[in-house]
Nucleic acid binder design. Sequence first.
DNA 1: AGAGTTCGGGGAAACGATTACCAGAAATAC
DNA 2: GTATTTCTGGTAATCGTTTCCCCGAACTCT
Lengths: 374, 374
Amino acid sequence: MASPVSPTRNHAADRRRPGAVSIREVAQRAGVSIATVSRTVNRIPSVNPELARRVWQAIDEVGYLPNTQARALVSGRSRMLGLIVSEITNPFFPELVQEFENLAVAQGYEVFIGSTNYDPVRTESLIRRMLQRSVDGVAVMTFGIEEDLVQKLVEREFPLVFVDAGPDLPNIRVLKVDYGEGIRQGVQHLAALGHRSIAFITGPLYMRSAVARRDAFVKSMAEIGLTAPAEHIVEGTHTMEGGIAGMERLLALTELPTAVMCSNDMTAIGVLHALFRTTHKVPEEISVVGFDDIHLAQFALPPLTTVQMSCKDLAAAAVEGLRAGIEPDHSRAATKQWRIPTRLVVRQSTAFPRGTLPALMQNALRVPRSGGVK
Amino acid sequence: MASPVSPTRNHAADRRRPGAVSIREVAQRAGVSIATVSRTVNRIPSVNPELARRVWQAIDEVGYLPNTQARALVSGRSRMLGLIVSEITNPFFPELVQEFENLAVAQGYEVFIGSTNYDPVRTESLIRRMLQRSVDGVAVMTFGIEEDLVQKLVEREFPLVFVDAGPDLPNIRVLKVDYGEGIRQGVQHLAALGHRSIAFITGPLYMRSAVARRDAFVKSMAEIGLTAPAEHIVEGTHTMEGGIAGMERLLALTELPTAVMCSNDMTAIGVLHALFRTTHKVPEEISVVGFDDIHLAQFALPPLTTVQMSCKDLAAAAVEGLRAGIEPDHSRAATKQWRIPTRLVVRQSTAFPRGTLPALMQNALRVPRSGGVK
DNA sequence: AGAGTTCGGGGAAACGATTACCAGAAATAC
DNA sequence: GTATTTCTGGTAATCGTTTCCCCGAACTCT
């Protein structure tokens, strides 16, 4: 018969990357069956310790890494978590992504990140991609109203985590951010300094969280007997550009407010920019408050007083919420809501209103190097 | 006795998510074999158009989505690209990630993002995770020297893309950023304004790109007959904190430079912050130039003059470079190096040196040629 | 018309894991 | 000493695809 027969079929095995080892090689080397290797790797207690030792040694020697795809295929679980954010380029989200990823990886999950860019078409494609990769659950951290868009995930009973609100279904958990408390602290801080005329630049009002923040502002103002006139509440976009545009609208008013609160830090940074362009001094002439407390906030000029929403807390709750939905005997499987606190962080973008007596004391805060201010 | 026989075995099929459909259901519904469905989905031209039509219709009716894991398992290709960045929280990277992702998705790839956070242990684990998920290739966009860390990828002959430099192997492509041209433009811009005393805050010098940027600065200075004294070149960290620290060291000098160039924009933002704290005016008293041109740069106070390195170009080259390595008949399979251009973007953080007046009056005034040409 | 060629599509073998089931060996019971 | 139970580890089925191989039908050519 012919010489040792070259394999005629071109199977995946031939395409395997050099150095890639399968469970079979380990089994052969350790002199056991592949079942035993699998059991050893998955730490099934019934394997003989001596065999286990041999298996681990073989694994080490050949550099075996279990193939996640194969594992996922048979187990029906991919150990991947989807994380949907609005825009990865908005500095708030990378911080969240980072925390989320750290926690997920610590629990043995991989993260499938995607951003909607506020585009329904893109979002739909994103969800299809997540379905195809069969993620185990998805955290929808867009702070928006995407329930119709994630309908496919809901139908298929994926464990889901939403922020602020979501359908009340067994597999769905909601992270309730306490916008009220932090914003109240912000308003009261400004009021305590003597501000009465406080404007608010919102986020895009199709976002649930933007509405919630605005409402929290109005409510906090009312609590201390203040009402902002309609023209002092302007809609922004949660971007620097939106902050600039919003501030420009406020600057065009006959009566300029003495303080501006913003629905997020990016907006506040835009506001600072607009005020810089028009040579208004912050905080001497106008105070500015942000929301989120992104890392950048402390490096704004001046460093931004802002309401902190801990993205560590948010990420931790998201991961735990997903795990609770995925792992049948998770300790908090029954928890349906997770509260996320907020609090004020005072920096240097807030001060007494312009033209008030304590203004003298402001000079103590910033000492001009030499000469006077121009 | 129990009612109609519950299935005794607990197979993955039982764990399948509601609504998940496999190729078999499609085949049955269309009245063809699964092979034909597969061929249709993969657009193999040999299938009868009439059958194909029936298959597509069935796919549509049952909402079939091919399972990527199974596909990857048999084909040996996961259609996932690894993307390794230094720190996702550094605003430069999200912009890169975004572009990379858009391009990759357009080509039918998914992106596996990971950040090293400059931690070798974390990096190693990241690479192990990428190996397990069997990515098709990896773009190492850390701008650092990670060759030893990605050794495992090199050994296994993964298609790789590096920035600046990498081993000369068949599967490896290198993106050569032209640091020289942009930095030269920056130096000449400052010199044209009349600056002679220009400092430079580097990135961390274990990063290849940080060294390259510094060298480009020194070279550009030399070209126009200037040499920066040693104390005018201080090492930073490519972060805002590093920019602050670096600027503080410069401020402590007896002879303050009239302009500061920075190895990246984050450093420059830190510098602006440090100058603000010490009430130095930018650009009246000191000019500042950044590098990268991140989105934030135009919102700095004042808007930052900077050297643009297009992360669109970078991302495009990375994706194409990987595809060239992965897809056997890619048009640019032979290309080993991809040049990334840079160019100066002038905004408002640069001006005439302090103590000089605009050009028309300069002749009348003393121009401090500190040291002159040696 | 018969013999050779295409050609399209179905059956079945992979891919690399997990795990139900079962066969022996060892341990225990009588 | 035999019968029964317990235990351990191997065999094989399975996940959802891709793709090789082959069979039968339809052509082509003399």
